[in-house]
Design a protein around this nucleic acid. Structure first.
Lengths: 354, 354
DNA sequence: GCGGGAATGATAGACGTCAATCATTTTGTG
DNA sequence: CACAAAATGATTGACGTCTATCATTCCCGC
């Protein structure tokens, strides 16, 4: 028979107490004798009672207000992330969760601070932001926290801050993964890897290089690091120079952005010699095309979809004061030409109301 | 100000109609003039109304009853999947979704059929099952469907059946991914891959081999296929034999189960010569340990966690008659030693009620 | 055994939607 | 203009939980 799930009224009946008492127990309002508490708990587990969250949320008419702050600009990765947040926001509207996506000038911590201060005054239940490694951000997070607004860092952590959680990959692990693949691709032969980063001072890029170094061994060496400022044009010229200057280079690892430039260099390489092994980060339009065209070998991706999902999940848990919240480590994913996920749609796929 | 999300009453007011009429429109009950329909729709989008699913579910007191049918036995992969389903079931109880996990003797379609017939009579809202390629299963699915019970196939599809969706990897793609990695690992040199499957008659294993064949080229050849019946002992003896018989083997690809035997062989290999490249499927306890120990190179995983999540999602959508449901293609994931996800906990992490 | 505080009971309104029912108004047709 | 049919309005109870208030019973120390 279709037995409906037990309600709190059922529990009260079973425990031989009134609804009010059962409610006092399950909601921890106090003023109930130990004996009765035990009786109610026994009834709860005997019946397998779980409170109906739909009803609970309805009665409390709880509304979650979250804000995601992303760096603005044309960077393909963050554009995708913005997109993902917006899709997620649309889908969550039905659950009374509002998620506003904001952009601030990248790395301008004053603007960020001003914006966050403003938000703090408006009853926001949680904030997700892309961390940067300066003291100003640490302070802002502390301020928000003191006002009871939890902050989740995303993609890049703010070490030493009071962020409730970090959602993103461990960049040392990502670099190590690349190192392992480089070892595999060289198969015991000697080789020389050309590392390309945005800037060595950027924490995440440095971490990736470190991870790489920890794993490679044998006859694999590193050429001197190119700093491309994450700009296509600079990466292009510097990599082209390095390749012609050092013919012993067998592989390229780009730990940062500006990969369209790198891809152009590879494309222009003479077809006579085997091209170097190329591994780079983030599956976006141009890296995807290059992978499909066989210009590069592997893309390491941090799965922004999953990051977005976890951020929202984490924010919701925090808003419900349901600690502890896990520091969700996302593991970097390896894409080759064959296991690419279906191309991402730009259209907002909102569910029609039935 | 904290404006609460608009309710249907707000929409009605805005549209200048009664609540009843607004309800008729949004729930498609008919009997409303076109003009009014348009007015209501305009109000809906003007206010950004989204129906409160919590309230809706509450009023309808909808209970979803799903069943997942998995093959029984000690197979590590399905044991993990069972686990995942059970954890998911516990977590979903709060949402009035019940998910029963059942096991039937693997590949015994008569038992499966009997079980499913029984379930069909008991008001189940959806069934997930691991497909097999026989006509009996096709029939059962058709019967269920005719009774209005949607079926989702999992891990292995039932081609030509009326399943509403398939959740799992495309095995040709998985094999192709392995092929690409094999090419990369051989780096232009010649090589010989030893393929190990459970049985060539198994659709999924054959697909994986086909995918492999499509991608490899150059000087890479395939040794003759070993059929290990997915049994550790058989795999162990056959692979050991093949390796000593053919010293030109540079790589092993195991498309099926029984990999503990394969790992034992690799472990026993003399340390003098470089060991072959080893790629196999499914991240379970023993494959994980082998990867960590450097005995194997790569594990291809189908992310059972994601599959479980999608199955449940899909079943819910189907139960709500919210077609069309996507045939969710899950992309195989590549694990090397460095990017392994955190070890999976066997404990049920149920959320405490607040 | 009496007073007082603690424990428990009883009950009601609110949340937003769904699914009814019945009453009333508008519209179209001859 | 009358009349039926179509469209719309008005209203109600139910879903399960939360929160609140007030009434009642219990137990303890004196």
């Amino acid at each position: 028979m279709h037995d409906r799930p037990p309600t709190l009224a059922d529990v009260a009946l079973r425990a031989g107490v009134s609804y009010a008492t059962a409610d006092r127990v399950v909601n921890g309002r106090g003023g109930v004798s130990d004996k009765t508490v035990r009786r109610v708990h026994a009834a709860v587990s005997a019946l397998g009672y779980v409170r109906n969250v739909a009803a609970a949320n309805l009665s409390q008419q709880r509304v979650y207000r979250f804000v995601a702050v992303l760096p603005e600009g044309s960077n393909a990765f963050f554009a995708r992330m913005r997109d993902l947040f917006e899709v997620a926001a649309a889908r969550m509207a039905a659950d009374r969760v509002t998620l506003a996506v904001e952009t601030v000038a990248a790395f301008d911590s004053d603007v960020l601070r001003a914006r966050l201060d403003l938000l703090a005054g408006q009853g926001v239940d949680g904030i997700a932001l892309v961390g940067s490694d300066d003291s100003s951000t640490v302070e802002v997070i502390a301020t928000l926290r003191s006002k009871g607004i939890p902050v989740v860092t995303l993609v890049s952590d703010v070490p030493g801050s009071e962020r409730a959680a970090y959602v993103g990959i461990d960049n040392v692990i990502a670099g190590g993964t690349v190192g392992r693949l480089m070892m595999l691709a060289h198969g015991g032969r000697s080789g020389r890897i050309l590392p390309v980063v945005g800037a060595l001072s950027a924490r995440d890029h440095a971490d990736r290089l470190q991870g790489l170094r920890e794993v490679i061994g044998g006859d694999i060496t590193l050429a001197s690091v190119i700093e491309g400022r994450d700009r296509h044009d600079l990466v292009e010229t510097h990599v082209a120079e390095a390749l012609s200057a050092d013919p012993s280079i067998t592989a390229i690892y780009s730990a940062g952005a500006g990969n369209a430039g790198l891809i152009r260099v590879v494309e222009a390489l003479p077809a006579t010699t085997p091209r170097p092994i190329v591994i780079l980060h983030e599956l976006v339009a141009h890296s995807r095309r290059a992978l499909e065209a066989g210009l590069i070998d592997i893309v390491i991706d941090q799965r922004p979809e999953e990051e977005v999902a976890r951020v929202i999940d984490g924010l919701r848990q925090l808003a419900d004061r349901r600690e502890p919240v896990m520091t969700a480590v996302i593991v970097p994913t390896i894409y080759v030409r064959e296991n690419l996920p279906p191309e991402h749609q730009h259209t907002n796929t909102g569910h029609p109301a039935r």
